[in-house]
């Protein structure tokens, strides 16, 4: 099976942002995303995930470099100031490239 290079963008942030971010991801050109619940600790304190206001999510998007940059720029301008958020990306080799 042939593999092609794409970018995996990962956003770890507050669960309350889920619907707002997911709506925007489509507009920025992402063809899909995967969300998992997350827990952890960072500069905004411990986020135990036990209940709504305390929950984190991890959003993963596989896309091309342009869309990855757009997602990162969007996250920075909209959310970095006031929300617990970590964004990182790295190259990945994916099968079924027509899906992304």
């Amino acid at each position: 099976m042939s593999l092609k290079n794409k970018i995996l963008v990962t956003i770890v942030t507050e669960a309350s942002l889920e619907s707002a971010i997911c709506k925007q991801l489509g507009r920025l050109g992402a063809s899909g995303h995967t969300i998992t619940d997350a827990r952890g600790k960072g500069s905004q304190g411990q986020r135990g995930g036990g209940w709504d206001a305390d929950s984190n999510i991890r959003i993963e998007v596989i896309c091309n470099e342009t869309v990855a940059q757009a997602i990162t720029d969007f996250a920075q301008s909209e959310y970095f100031d006031n929300f617990a958020m970590v964004v990182y990306s790295h190259p990945v080799s994916v099968a079924r490239t027509n899906k992304f």
Binding site: S16, L17, A20, Q44, W51, D52, A53, Y79, D81, N82
Partner: peptide, 22 residues
């Protein structure tokens, strides 16, 4: 409140510190 208002405030007034109100 500790469920409905924190969620609504987080979206509408994000610069408010949620740890303080909770």
């Amino acid at each position: 409140s500790y469920i409905a208002v924190p969620a609504a405030m987080r979206i509408s007034v994000p610069e408010a510190n949620p740890t303080l109100s909770l």
